[in-house]
């Protein structure tokens, strides 16, 4: 990615486990703030179990899951059906693509690069599969990507499987690709700790997108509270 933000800081929020709807509301606020000239931000969190359907998803991809206890949300991101749950590091970068070359594909490739480098830091060789956005290890999917763009500000983002329990995927057709096998960092022999993955991912993110550094960002009863630098 060509960077322009070498002097810019990235605001990073790590609020822990957050309800899906609430995370969407936070992103909406961050997008509005970015459109008004605010900084780029990165939300890193886990969700309680939830199935989400991208705009181009076929509800049939949910299989049995659609009728279960786990909530289902239809969302404005690209991509198909996926599952989020504990043990998965979900990232929502709210990034102005104007500063990153105004190229949606290039941005998707850069997100893949961040994920590949993060996974690589644990000694796991991950790769792209041309035509199948996301990150793969030995033919199994380890991270999914789906973004939305509003006036050249990107939101939604990626989900990186960290922990062992991938049960939520069992009943759906993730990403609309029949027969896709999911894997995770712990299943590939790495540490299965979401909290420990966060600093590695942040370091790769600021490096690949060319930020000068990080400033913590917190949410208090849904209001944005940038911490003092």
């Amino acid at each position: 990615m060509v960077r322009a933000g070498a002097t810019k800081l990235l605001e990073v929020a790590t609020p822990g486990c957050v309800d899906y709807d609430r995370a969407v509301a936070w992103q909406e606020r961050l997008v509005a703030r970015r459109l008004a000239g605010g900084p780029d931000a990165l939300l890193l969190l886990e969700h309680p179990p939830v199935y989400t359907l991208g705009r181009s998803a076929d509800a049939r991809h949910l299989g049995r899951a659609g009728a279960g206890d786990v909530p289902v949300r239809r969302v404005a991101r690209g991509g198909q059906a996926t599952y989020h749950g504990p043990g998965q590091l979900v990232g929502y970068p709210v990034v102005a693509l104007a500063a990153q070359g105004r190229d949606v594909h290039r941005y998707l490739r850069a997100l893949e690069e961040v994920l590949i480098a993060t996974i690589g830091a644990f000694g796991i060789a991950a790769e792209r599969r041309p035509g199948f956005t996301g990150v793969w290890v030995r033919g199994c999917k380890i991270a999914s990507i789906g973004i939305a763009v509003r006036r050249w500000v990107a939101w939604h983002g990626f989900a990186l499987n960290v922990g062992r329990d991938l049960g939520g995927f069992a009943s759906i057709t993730p990403c609309g690709i029949p027969g896709v096998q999911m894997t995770s960092i712990v299943r590939e022999g790495g540490p299965g700790d979401v909290a420990g993955t966060i600093p590695v991912l942040v370091a790769r993110f600021i490096e690949i997108f060319g930020y000068a550094g990080v400033r913590p960002l917190a949410f208090e009863s849904d209001a944005l509270v940038p911490a003092a630098p």
Binding site: S56, G78, V104
Partner: peptide, 29 residues
């Protein structure tokens, strides 16, 4: 074209979202 948010005959103002367009795994308003 993922969906049209305006239908033929509807008034459109500057800045209104007309449609959602998909390329790769990105949705653009």
């Amino acid at each position: 074209i993922l969906r049209w948010l305006k239908q033929p005959g509807q008034k459109v103002a500057i800045g209104d979202v007309l449609a959602e367009v998909e390329t790769d795994k990105a949705n653009m308003e």
